[in-house]
């Protein structure tokens, strides 16, 4: 079971911080995409690169560059470790700015 936000700190994070992150995106039919976030628009249509896919039947393969429309997304997840790194990075950044 993945964690939800009540259990985890997202302190100071904004959407642009997630660019370059590895996202795990749950789609319909038990399909999961893992890729780097390259871009997103205001409707949350994502553009992912170096995408690996795990289909509902377990078949794994590489797809490359994939556009993921919001309406196809059931969930967007980020590894805890990566999230922690982002928070830490942002904290340091803001510290230096101030």
């Amino acid at each position: 079971m993945s964690k939800d936000l009540s259990q985890v700190s997202m302190e100071g994070l904004k959407l642009p911080d997630f660019v370059g992150c590895t996202l795990y995106v749950n789609l319909h039919n038990n399909r999961i995409l893992k890729g780097s976030l390259m871009a997103l628009d205001a409707q949350l249509n994502l553009l992912l690169d170096h995408v690996q896919e795990r289909a509902g039947d377990g078949n794994r393969r590489t797809l490359g560059l994939v556009s993921v429309p919001r309406k196809t997304i059931q969930a967007i997840k980020v590894p805890q470790a990566e999230l922690n790194q982002l928070v830490q990075f942002k904290r340091n950044l803001l510290k230096n700015v101030v």
Binding site: A39, D41, N45, L47, S67, P69
Partner: peptide, 11 residues
């Protein structure tokens, strides 16, 4: 065309 073709040109 994917959404991002349109995003490329129109945005």
């Amino acid at each position: 065309y994917s959404i991002y073709v349109y995003r490329y040109f129109l945005n």
